[in-house]
């Protein structure tokens, strides 16, 4: 057993090395507490629903969410009717029809979230050359993504500290690399009106939209952890039985 513990410790040690290396290089953002943390963590559904509202009413004018389909919203508690109605607010280009013509139609649940731009060039043209990234994977595409996004959205300062020269069209943000970002502060208190009565402070909206984008980055998040718990329980039983059998079988081997 002693040898086994050593072997296991070596394996874990090896697996931990990259993390040590990573920690030595990353930018530090303050940690918030999130409902999706930990083994039993799940996406906070009311928060994600409010987050969708923030995305729709604020971020969507500049950022796409092209990997999400409207139907995916069923997983954060929207009914089929609500999703149909929500999708119908958008128009998509379809076709060609039997006459060989492209046509516009209302979006349906199986369509992907409609992007505010036709292409990257148009996005840059509208935003003074800056490119508002697609937000579908943003939580996974940044180290410590959820904490980073929250910090970014709440990290604006009215004025740059003394000695910092802001370039034209840039805004000061404490957590963006280089501190100068082309995105104007997107959230102000009461920018949106929540139907569930939640006070729409900047930090509340930042948290909510982070929950929504966490879900968007990984719609299978809750399913993954729930399945994981079952798998681990099964494996504990399996490994325990294997251990007991091993002890029994090996009992007659003389040292």
């Amino acid at each position: 057993m002693r040898k086994f513990v050593i072997a296991a410790a070596v394996a874990l040690g090896l697996a931990a090395t990259p993390q040590i290396a990573k920690a030595a290089g990353g930018v530090d953002v303050p940690s918030q507490s999130w409902a999706f943390e930990g083994v039993f963590g799940t996406i906070d559904i009311p928060a994600a629903q409010r987050g969708l509202q923030v995305y729709k009413e604020v971020c969507a004018s500049c950022h796409g969410l092209s990997l999400m389909a409207y139907r995916n919203l069923a997983q954060i508690g929207f009914s089929e009717e609500e999703i149909k109605a929500l999708a119908a607010d958008y128009t998509v280009m379809d076709g060609p029809n039997d006459d060989g013509e492209m046509f516009e139609r209302a979006a349906i649940p199986s369509d992907r979230f409609v992007s505010p731009y036709a292409n990257e060039q148009e996005a840059r043209a509208i935003n003074n050359g800056a490119y508002p990234v697609d937000l579908s994977l943003i939580i996974k595409a940044r180290a410590d993504g959820a904490n980073y996004l929250y910090a970014l959205l709440t990290g604006y300062r009215e004025e740059a500290p003394e000695g910092v020269d802001l370039m034209p069209g840039m805004y000061y943000n404490e957590y963006y690399g280089g501190n100068q970002i082309a995105m104007p502060q997107p959230l102000y208190d009461d920018f949106v009106e929540y139907s569930d009565g939640t006070q729409a402070t900047v930090s509340q909206m930042a948290k909510d939209v982070t929950y929504f984008l966490k879900f968007a980055a990984e719609p299978s998040h809750d399913e993954r952890k729930q399945m994981g718990i079952k798998v681990i329980i099964f494996l504990l039983v399996f490994t325990g039985l294997a251990y007991a059998s091993m002890k029994k079988i090996w009992a007659d081997v003389k040292k």
Binding site: A8, K225, G228, I232, L235, T239, M246
Partner: peptide
């Protein structure tokens, strides 16, 4: 088999969590 069980626990820990 016992070693495999322990390994799969680590593997599942990574894959699912």
């Amino acid at each position: 088999t016992f070693g495999l069980g322990v390994f799969l626990l680590v593997f599942a820990g990574l894959v699912f969590f």
